[in-house]
């Protein structure tokens, strides 16, 4: 009877998994995880079936130190004398254990025309996740609130610099943010004994456990020009400015220089002693309605009679924006 029970045990595969769950993880198996393996053998001696299991071998996952810095604003258009202009960077822990990172800015980067002046504080956490510097954002203090990131975890930071007043159009100023693992960084393969999670080694990964992101501030003094011209058509087939004559205005707006505007709005008053001709407003030959609605233009009487056309972001590549409208001489 007892030997029959033994046979029943033999018939069962002895699977020995130390870890039941298989966490799919971009950073790899989590540091400190114990991986166990046990082999099993079945055999027969004469007519007797038997089995045995091996010792259980345990391999502990050591910590690998890796970090990536991704610049989300590679080029920031600035003007001379600007203050507190931010670069947005994403710092991601691509190692397999929780890690604390130290952040350092460096603007003495070669190959540019000026060095942005490091603001104080120079790095902020994007606490309110707005993507830009705002009152709610917490300043970073080296050694005080170094970001602690779980494996695959990331944090957005804003690197803040001032632009010298002496720079000129087209100048570039490079700014760099470096994040390095507090446990240690250096050549890939460098090991820090007992420094990893669960008393394991911490080993520097292929990123060197330090990463930099570089962005450029580009000085752009963009000029927006508007050139207005008129054609008078009188009711007698001539071009005299008689009461009742129609004046057709054309305004050509163009941007020249590097960079672009965030938004351009053209407003032009209707001259005294004239009346706007309803339905005459056009942008690049397309008719615009007089009311304030989905299209770019409107005619309004508050605070006084004027036309208003929203041109949006303009760059030199946008080319000429031609606005036309007409008035009648009272």
């Amino acid at each position: 009877m007892q030997s029959v029970r033994s046979l029943a045990v033999v018939g069962t595969m002895a699977l020995a998994f130390g870890i039941a769950s298989l966490d799919a993880h971009a950073a790899g198996a989590l540091a400190g995880t114990d991986i166990e393996s046990t082999a099993e053998v079945t055999y027969t001696v004469g007519a007797v079936n038997a089995s045995a299991t091996s010792n259980t071998v345990t391999v502990r996952v050591a910590e690998i130190l890796n970090v990536v810095v991704t610049v989300q604003t590679p080029t920031v258009a600035v003007s001379p004398g600007d203050t507190a202009r931010e670069i947005v960077c994403l710092i991601t822990n691509t190692g397999n254990g929780p890690e604390t990172f130290r952040l350092v800015t460096d603007n003495a980067v070669g190959g540019d025309e000026f060095d942005p002046a490091i603001a104080s504080p120079s790095i902020y956490f994007d606490t309110d996740a707005s993507g830009d510097l705002s009152a709610a954002d917490t300043p970073y203090v080296a050694g005080g609130n170094d970001p602690v990131l779980p494996p695959d975890g990331s944090v957005t930071v804003l690197v803040v610099n001032d632009i010298p007043g002496t720079v000129v159009d087209g100048n570039r100023g490079f700014a760099r943010l470096t994040a390095d693992a507090r446990t240690g960084s250096g050549a890939p393969g460098t090991a820090f004994v007992n420094a990893g999670v669960g008393g394991t080694e911490a080993v520097v990964g292929l990123t060197g456990a330090a990463a930099s992101g570089q962005a450029q501030y580009l000085v752009t003094s963009l000029t927006v020009n508007a050139v207005k011209s008129q054609v008078i058509v009188d009711q007698f087939g001539g071009s005299r400015p008689l009461p009742g004559a129609r004046i057709n205005y054309t305004i050509v707006v163009s941007a020249t220089g590097a960079g672009g505007t965030a938004s351009t709005v053209l407003t032009d008053r209707i001259p005294a002693n004239t009346s706007f001709v309803p339905g005459s407003l056009r942008l690049n030959t397309s008719a615009l309605s007089d009311s304030a609605d989905a299209d770019a233009g409107e005619f309004t009487t508050t605070p006084d009679a004027r036309v208003r056309v929203t041109l949006g972001a303009l760059t030199q590549a946008s080319g000429n924006q031609t606005i036309e409208f007409a008035v009648l001489i009272n």
């Binding site: 699977l15 130390g18 198996a29 991986i35 166990e36 099993e40 053998v41 027969t44 004469g46």
Partner: peptide, 18 residues
């Protein structure tokens, strides 16, 4: 043992995370 073992079969799961 002093006698041969027959039908020797070894099983090993591929360890977790590997």
């Amino acid at each position: 043992c002093k006698q041969a073992s027959e039908n020797v079969t070894i099983n090993n799961p591929v360890p977790a995370h590997m």
